[in-house]
Write a protein that binds this DNA or RNA. Structure first.
Length: 259
DNA sequence: ATGGTGGCTGTGCCA
């Protein structure tokens, strides 16, 4: 089973690029972030034509996550516990059943958190704590779990072309990196880093020719529970997608699991 | 490089 994460930066602007990539790559599950659409306006038919079930957790203008799955997504969970007044749509989870068993997936859009001196960074860290709590609950089920998304965290210096340029950025703060390490210490495997020691990126800014200079960062991650990690076969970053017409600033990351 | 680009919105905000 192929499970992908992709921050598409607006589903309306990315509809052609998204359907083209889905036809080519044919992931069984695609976790999308930054759909920037309310649920009613999400162009579900375009994806249903490709054989996907569509589940969304949208919001007007910003944020918003979705899961496209060839098999039905069961028991959808929208949002994280712990902040009932939080209206930002950043978390969607569900279960897919296969002949081999079940896999639980989450589409995650962690807050960016810039600037660091603002309440936005505090919100990022508080949101990360709520994700840690949910991630712990899921471990107790001893199921294959894939926490897929745009974490807005650069884990290590190798994960940026110019790490020194990110010193004061929320994506590379010690607290942000510590949060990411905690998920791994709990038992979640960084699927990309488990399969390569190379410098690989998933995001290149639209500005200042970042793509042309390969000035990228690795912030889109697939974290696997032990039961999912045991079934990990391959991981791929669809870098070529960044060089196409009207690209997102992020590219898909895809893991193949034996489930 | 206190700039730069893009999406969605609404003439600014967010990334």
């Amino acid at each position: 089973m192929k499970i992908a994460t992709w921050n598409i930066n607006g589903v309306k602007a990315r509809l052609d690029a998204a359907t083209l990539w889905l036809e080519e790559a044919s992931p069984d599950i695609a976790c999308l972030q930054e759909i920037k659409s309310v649920d009613e306006a999400f162009p579900a038919e375009a994806f249903e034509r490709l054989g996907y079930n569509v589940t969304t957790h949208g919001q007007k203008g910003f944020n918003g996550v979705a899961i496209l799955s060839k098999r039905p997504l069961e028991d959808p969970v929208r949002g994280l516990d712990g902040a009932p007044d939080d209206v930002q749509a950043r978390y969607l989870e569900g279960v897919v059943s296969t002949d081999e068993g079940v896999v639980r997936v989450a589409s995650i859009y962690l807050p960016n958190g810039n600037p660091v001196e603002s309440e936005k960074f505090a919100y990022k860290l508080a949101w990360a704590e709520r994700l840690i709590a949910r991630a712990g609950e899921l471990l107790a089920n001893e199921e294959p779990v894939v926490l897929a998304g745009d974490y807005n965290v650069i884990p290590e210096p190798i994960d940026a072309k110019k790490p020194e340029a990110w010193t004061n950025d929320a994506l590379f703060q010690p607290e942000s990196r510590a949060f990411y390490r905690r998920l791994q210490a709990m038992g979640y495997l960084d699927a990309v880093r488990a399969t390569t020691d190379e410098a690989v990126y998933t995001f290149w800014d639209y500005q200042a020719g970042a793509w042309q200079k390969d000035n990228g960062i690795r912030i889109d991650h697939l974290l696997l529970s032990p039961q999912a990690a045991d079934r990990l076969e391959t991981v791929e970053i669809a870098k070529d997608v960044r060089g196409r017409d009207k690209p997102s600033d992020h590219v898909p990351v895809i893991a193949t699991l034996a489930v």
